[in-house]
Design a protein around this nucleic acid. Structure first.
Lengths: 194, 194
DNA sequence: CGGAAAGTTGAGACTAATCAAACCTAGTGG
DNA sequence: CCACTAGGTTTGATTAGTCTCAACTTTCCG
């Protein structure tokens, strides 16, 4: 990706809702969330982006959600116009962009299924999704707070915390620290996930 | 749109999940829903399409959800390849397609907000969304069953029915018949919608 | 060491789900 | 024309699951 790496402080806004979408982004370090907030403070997190992830590929002319650094993050930025110009004559590049957009759509679709899931199913699904980032590792490092997870899953922090405790209790996972989780039994998690 | 009008019986499948996406569709009469179903029977409806609506514009190579006729429906079908070919040289046509895809993305985004909403907010939002189809009319005709609405909003039919009854009770809406609803107070509905 | 932010745990309240029954409405056939 | 049926809808009583409120613990950092 072209462009210099920009540093964003924890909770800094990378772009805002309704802002024009002029760039593509790639996370170098740290983590990013996209979200929309209601007047009364309720927040819906749309997705999380970890190092390596390219985001805002599927952007419309104006952003439908804002993006924020979950913690200090370095992000590479590329001008949309430049990227599109390159895609114009380099077919393979265009195809890669398309693949990223499709993956994002799939993720959104999958995420929309949480509506009909119980708290336990939502949390199990979340852990599997995060583990899917680097499938080999048996433990995952969560860069986001319980509040972020809760707002992603449509639960409260207490319910997220309790559900994780229960999963640990049953031996399905282990909480090394609150942010580092070992998946002891992925089959069980998948079964819970429905 | 090019292509002949096809008739689909109530509950007939227009395309299935994982099927290759070869066509674009436009509803002529009747109504269509897209959905995904889990093994245990739980169903998530992604969207509803009414007469005039063009759907499957945002499709990926393989369908992420199936589409079914809510009731007898006539649908015009156009080959994707033909549509794309035309978009290739007719810039205005391409722009229209893009607009449709963007609208669909916006709708999905808006729909993802139900996660953090109460039953009342979900139902109010649903009514406003349906009313938005033809903004002028003060009453709306719902082609879908309560079960469809419930599966769209992540509620049960009982909760949907009860919530509608409460809204009628408070004078915000009137239930002419179970399928025909008069919006007596859109401002109140918007306020509820948050 | 002290303070703030994040996370966990518990008790009780409340919302929506579940289970069950009754009610419509449209269509069918005697 | 009316009884009968089936699918859809409404309503009631009870239960289950998640939220709320509150206290406490842990972790992180200056």
């Amino acid at each position: 990706m072209i462009g210099a790496s920009t540093r964003f402080a924890r909770n800094a806004e990378i772009y805002g809702e309704d802002d024009p979408a002029e760039y593509l982004y790639q996370v170098i370090s740290g983590a990013v969330r996209t979200c929309r907030t209601l007047d009364d403070g309720r927040r819906q997190i749309g997705s999380f982006y970890l190092p390596g992830d390219i985001f805002d590929v599927e952007a419309t002319e104006v952003h439908l959600a804002s993006a924020e650094a979950i913690r200090e993050a370095h992000v590479v930025v590329a001008k949309r116009s430049a990227v599109m110009a390159r895609a114009e004559y380099e077919k393979n590049f265009a195809r890669q962009l398309w693949t990223l957009a499709v993956r994002e759509l799939q993720r959104m679709h999958e995420h929309s299924m949480v509506l009909m899931k119980s708290a336990e199913e939502r949390v199990a699904g979340f852990l599997l999704e995060m583990a899917g980032r680097n499938a080999a590792a048996q433990s995952i490092e969560l860069p986001m707070t319980r509040q972020d997870i809760a707002d992603y899953l449509g639960l409260t922090i207490e319910t997220v915390s309790r559900t994780l405790s229960q999963l640990a209790q049953s031996g399905t996972i282990a909480l090394e620290t609150s942010r580092r989780i070992v998946l002891r039994n992925r089959v069980a998690l998948s079964r819970i996930n429905a």
